[in-house]
Amino acid sequence: MEHTHTGAAHEEHAHDSSTKSIWKTFWILLAITVFEVGLAFLYLEYDFMARWALNGIFVCLTLVKAFFIVAEFMHLRHEIRNLIMTILIPLLLFVWFIIAFLADGDSWKNMRKDLSPGTPVAPATHITNEAAHH
């Protein structure tokens, strides 16, 4: 694919502002992805920061990438306000959707911890039960 890219850059005839902003968006997306993968590698090698902080960075960078794809590639930023709002306002449901469900998952885990017999024996019994089924 490296070849595709260089080919594309050379075959360009129309060097107007629109094509320029397309390539600019491409470099931004590529740079963010390379940065993310780089951070993941650094974490694997050196374990240099807290996992939750790293995940927070990944989620933020993902949202930045999503913004550039929707705003520039899908051209939404250059549409009129009515269209932007009719698409973005329903997506606000995701705020509730994500918070409610992840909180639910977390409380489920806590309940399982609290209600489990609380001994390392628990997983072993589980395996025996499964074996009995077969």
Binding site: M1, T4, A8, S18, T19, F26, T33, F41, F73
Partner: peptide, 25 residues
């Protein structure tokens, strides 16, 4: 080689998105 292959896949898809915008343009 963790992450290397999926990075390549991501690059291919971003690249094809760029060629798509260029087609629209």
């Amino acid at each position: 080689l963790p992450l290397v292959f999926v990075s390549l896949m991501t690059f291919i898809l971003i690249m094809s998105s760029v060629t798509m915008v260029l087609a629209v343009h």
